[in-house]
């Protein structure tokens, strides 16, 4: 992938704080990490795009992972945010498992390939159990970033 992990997933967009218990609120919670990192110029627009995608079909992809995502001009550059839920969130995933590792991808409109490319690269890396374990074990945003930086090709 042609993205620098520090740029795509800066530590400011990673939290180890427990997210809200509801999926909808967690989607907003992750968006706010990107907002606080000054990459969002239209929060409402971005949030609506995420919800719209979620209404189409869930982004819970199983194995304890959810990847809500959207293309929206509400963001200024391709951005990923991450949180980890100890409690587990009901994402209505097909394997009926709660989501513990949640990634949110926001990409400006127009670069449709970017969007799919980030999603598939991330999914590919998350298929490896050792990567998921690494994300569960990491004790800091830097640790999370390092695991993903290594795993994403």
């Amino acid at each position: 992938m042609d993205y620098d992990i520090d740029r795509l997933l800066p530590t400011a967009q990673i939290t180890l704080e427990e997210p809200p218990a509801e999926k909808d609120e967690t989607i907003a919670f992750l968006l706010d990490l990107v907002v606080e990192n000054d990459r969002v110029n239209d929060r409402e627009n971005a949030l609506e795009a995420l919800r719209e995608r979620e209404r189409e079909t869930t982004t819970g992809v199983g194995k304890g992972i959810a990847i809500p995502h959207a293309q929206t001009d509400g963001v200024s550059e391709p951005s990923v945010a991450f949180c980890r839920s100890e409690a587990g969130l009901d994402f209505d995933s097909m394997d009926e498992q709660p989501a513990h590792l949640i990634f949110e991808i926001l990409v400006p409109e127009g670069g449709s390939d970017d969007h799919l490319e980030i999603l598939s690269s991330l999914s590919r890396s998350l298929m490896h159990e050792e990567v998921r374990e690494g994300l569960y074990d990491a004790e800091s945003p830097e640790g999370i970033q390092a695991v993903l930086g290594e795993a994403i090709d």
Binding site: G62, I65, I67, D95, E117, S120, S123
Partner: peptide, 24 residues
């Protein structure tokens, strides 16, 4: 393959696997 050069088959019953293919 757009992004994925490996062309390795994945389990079709896994959403994560299918998403990883990045097929347009």
């Amino acid at each position: 393959s757009g992004g994925n050069e490996e062309d390795e088959p994945v389990d079709a019953s896994s959403m994560l696997g299918v998403t990883s293919l990045g097929v347009g």
